[in-house]
């Protein structure tokens, strides 16, 4: 548990007036407020520190104690005992509005809790009996491309609890979904936090995915490319027969409409599958084959 310099957190000196503290706090809170820094864990942490600093420095009693013990706070045990016997009236709230930015009293540092015994008043310092939404949890889920071709249910263990979620088909790599009500418990009957799951979807060795479209390379031999023919190609939902027209060039593409990836949250809508032909040039020709190719070249 480390000492936290609350003056430094607010960027003020030790002689700062109440007005200077308030101004500095407002400035820092605007900068780091979770609502203006969505999904920024660093900003969230900084916001908590700033909030905690304000909680202490804007309250004359707490500020006095903080200044008194300062870096020597570990010897504040006696003070804590006194504090436990006192009835604090510092929590003089006037609003029942929930702050649902994920900040709860649990977010006060160990340093704060050790010194002030968890007397956090919450953001703004004026919200007694305030209902706080529980903390939002963040999790990552690693899946293969084929896992997200179909919607499926999966059981996850988050903070020791098993939850069963539906992973919708077509979800994108890096995409985050919100599972409402599976975060931390609320404070004072506040709503439960939410769970945010970010999906890491590995590339597939066979298919490249670009949005809802898939790309794949099909190898064909020279004779099929020259004379035309039929090949079988694997798609995400089975194999299909493809007619290769005579005179197919190396690198040419065909589009298989609707054989791509499912569109996210759009039932029965799919992207396209693009097949690129890779013409294999025969090697290790026999003498007879060489002769025939030479004849062809002359014709």
């Amino acid at each position: 548990m480390a000492f936290i310099d609350y003056y430094k957190a607010l960027g003020i000196n030790k002689n700062a007036t109440e007005k200077e503290i308030k101004t500095a706090y407002r400035k820092q809170a605007r900068k780091y407020h979770p609502d203006v820094n969505p999904n920024d864990k660093e900003a969230h942490k900084k916001f908590q520190e700033v909030n905690e600093a304000n909680e202490v420095l804007s309250d004359p009693d707490k500020r006095k104690k903080y200044d008194q013990y300062g870096t020597d706070w570990k010897h504040a045990d006696q003070f804590e005992q006194q504090a436990a016997q006192q009835q604090y009236n510092g929590r003089n709230y006037d609003s029942g509005r929930a702050y649902s930015g994920g900040f709860t009293e649990d977010d006060f540092s160990d340093f704060f809790n050790s010194m002030f015994g968890g007397q956090g008043g919450g953001f703004g310092g004026s919200r007694g009996q305030a209902r706080y939404k529980g903390q939002d949890f963040n999790a990552e889920l690693n899946l293969n491309l084929r896992d997200v071709y179909h919607s499926h249910k999966q059981t996850l263990t988050v903070n020791g609890k098993n939850i069963r979620i539906t992973i919708p088909a077509g979800i994108e790599n890096g995409q985050t979904i919100k599972i409402k009500g599976h975060g931390g418990a609320g404070v004072n009957n506040g709503p439960t936090g939410d769970l945010y799951i970010t999906f890491n979807i590995a590339n597939d060795p066979e298919f490249k995915r670009v949005g809802n479209d898939l790309y794949k390379t099909a190898h064909i031999d020279l004779y099929t490319a020259v004379l035309g023919g039929e090949i079988t190609v694997g798609t995400m939902d089975g194999r299909v027969k493809l007619k290769v027209p005579a005179g197919t060039q190396n690198g040419s593409k065909v589009k298989l409409k609707g054989k791509g990836f499912p569109k996210y949250k759009k039932e029965d809508e799919f992207g396209d599958l693009f097949i690129t032909y890779d013409v294999k040039i025969p090697t290790n020709l026999t003498d007879e084959q060489k002769r025939l190719f030479t004849e062809l070249a002359k014709s």
Binding site: R26, A29, R30, P38, S100, G124
Partner: peptide
Amino acid sequence: LERILRLHDDLDINLEGIHAVTQLL
């Protein structure tokens, strides 16, 4: 709506400011 109220309450931002913030967000 809850986010707007938090911005208004917590950060003392007026309507015009909240409008700008929400658009930027």
